[in-house]
């Protein structure tokens, strides 16, 4: 029975909350501002892009309906080197899944083991995520500079002068030089997500495993990994979608695709088509293909991880 004034007040509050959340109308009213914002800012522009992608349009003149011609020129005729940008996206996605996430996971496991200075290292690894991409871009521009960049300077002092090159200007190294900062930048982000996931596992489980004599490798394989599978799914999804959408560092480091289109990425191609070539229809088609890829990745990853859910 409710007796004290505080308990009565608390109970009434609970009842009100219950009633409110039970009513569809109230939910609708409270969600409405968000829905309006989302519709105006995201949903309608996507629909408009879909519409534009069926037209040939320079942004100001007459729009000419051409059906699927824009998609055909991209996918079949490889116009503006579309497939190179897709190839680069795939490489970046593989790097995310194969290098970035494993490194992030190792860091997360080591940190969560309770090493000395846990908080300090957590902050250090997370710093690149907080720093703006343009700052990171300028930083690496200096690092890669062929004349005074620290990378070439170090190589020269090590006697490896034959390895020095114009990292961003050499078509053979430009892609790697562009992707390294991206991989590096987001390791801390994924590390923090995975670290939070590991920390949320009840410590008794680890303790009992240790008492049973399990090694760290066994614990990681049999306990940690399965327990944080949902978190890994989130990281993978965010990482791969992120690699489809790379844009800022490509603009700053390689001037959107230089040298000679070797580092072209899809979002950069879309920007080029719309704002430099004035081909709004074609650019919209590229953007629609980006959206489709993002959705596909999300759905496929959800399928793959369906069975791992506990």
């Amino acid at each position: 029975m409710l007796s004290t004034p505080y308990e009565i007040q608390f109970g009434v509050k609970l009842i009100i909350m219950d009633k409110l959340l039970g009513s569809k109308k109230t939910i609708a009213i409270f969600v409405l501002p968000g829905v309006i914002f989302f519709t105006l800012m995201i949903f309608i522009p996507i629909i408009a892009s879909v519409a534009f992608s069926f037209f040939e349009w320079d942004g100001i003149g007459k729009m000419q309906f051409i059906g699927f011609q824009n998609f055909r020129s991209l996918l079949q005729d490889n116009i503006d080197n579309y497939w190179i940008s897709v190839k680069n996206t795939v490489i970046m996605a593989l790097l995310t899944a194969g290098v970035q996430l494993p490194l992030a996971f190792i860091l997360a496991v080591v940190l969560s083991e309770g090493i000395k200075g846990e908080g300090f290292f957590r902050t250090v690894y997370f710093t690149p995520v907080v720093v703006s991409s343009s700052v990171i871009g300028l930083l690496f521009l200096k690092i890669y500079n062929p004349d005074y960049g620290i990378l070439n300077v170090i190589l020269k002092h090590l006697g490896l002068e034959s390895l020095t090159t114009a990292w961003l200007g050499n078509p053979k190294t430009a892609l790697a030089a562009l992707f390294f900062p991206i991989v590096w930048q987001y390791i801390g982000y994924h590390m923090l997500l995975l670290y939070a996931g590991i920390k949320s596992i009840s410590p008794e489980i680890f303790e009992s495993a240790k008492i049973d004599g399990a090694k760290l490798s066994t614990i990681v394989r049999k306990i940690t990994l399965p327990m944080i599978a949902p978190m890994i799914e989130v990281c993978l999804t965010l990482g791969i979608i992120g690699s489809i959408k790379i844009f800022d560092l490509s603009i700053i480091l390689t001037n959107n695709g230089e040298p000679l289109g070797a580092t072209l990425v899809q979002a950069g191609l879309m920007y080029k088509q719309i704002f430099q070539y004035g081909m709004y229809g074609l650019g919209s088609a590229t953007s629609i293909l980006i959206i489709i890829q993002c959705l596909l990745v999300t759905v496929i990853l959800q399928r793959i991880f369906k069975n791992t859910r506990i």
Binding site: N145, P146, D147, T165, A166, W167, G169, P259
Partner: peptide, 15 residues
């Protein structure tokens, strides 16, 4: 200088 092909105009003019 071959490595100059990778620097941007501002840097080139400064150089």
């Amino acid at each position: 200088n071959k490595s100059d092909l990778s620097i941007n105009w501002d840097e080139g003019v400064q150089k």
